[in-house]
């Protein structure tokens, strides 16, 4: 798997740009992913979504359903797309360091 260097850190990623291991996540990773995902400036709302995703994953071992993410953050799906143009799966989960979504996508 390829590795990328960013701000003195090195990350191992797959073809889709997802990090190899949840544990290797850091704020540098967030900064690295943001430009690929069409995000200019990170704000508190971005960080909030990332925090919710990471806490949910740590507790449950899976990513939350879209509905749960909306409920916990209080952001409607439309707003999540405004924050993360590729959506909660490709955008937010990638940035939060969660494993790549699977299934019939």
């Amino acid at each position: 798997m390829p590795t990328v260097e960013f701000q003195g850190k090195s990350f191992t990623i797959d073809e889709d740009g997802f990090i190899d291991d949840y544990k290797n996540w850091s704020q540098e990773w967030v900064q690295y992913v943001k430009k690929e995902e069409g995000i200019d400036e990170l704000n508190e709302e971005h960080q909030n979504v990332i925090k919710v995703l990471r806490e949910y994953y740590e507790k449950n071992g899976i990513a939350p359903m879209v509905r749960v993410l909306s409920k916990v953050t209080g952001f409607k799906l439309k707003h999540i797309y405004e924050l993360f143009p590729s959506g909660p799966g490709k955008g937010a989960c990638k940035m939060a360091g969660l494993p790549k979504p699977t299934g019939c996508v």
Partner: peptide
């Protein structure tokens, strides 16, 4: 296995 790509704005 799998693959997550797309266009901005769409999921």
């Amino acid at each position: 296995h799998g693959g997550i790509v797309g266009v901005f704005g769409y999921g």
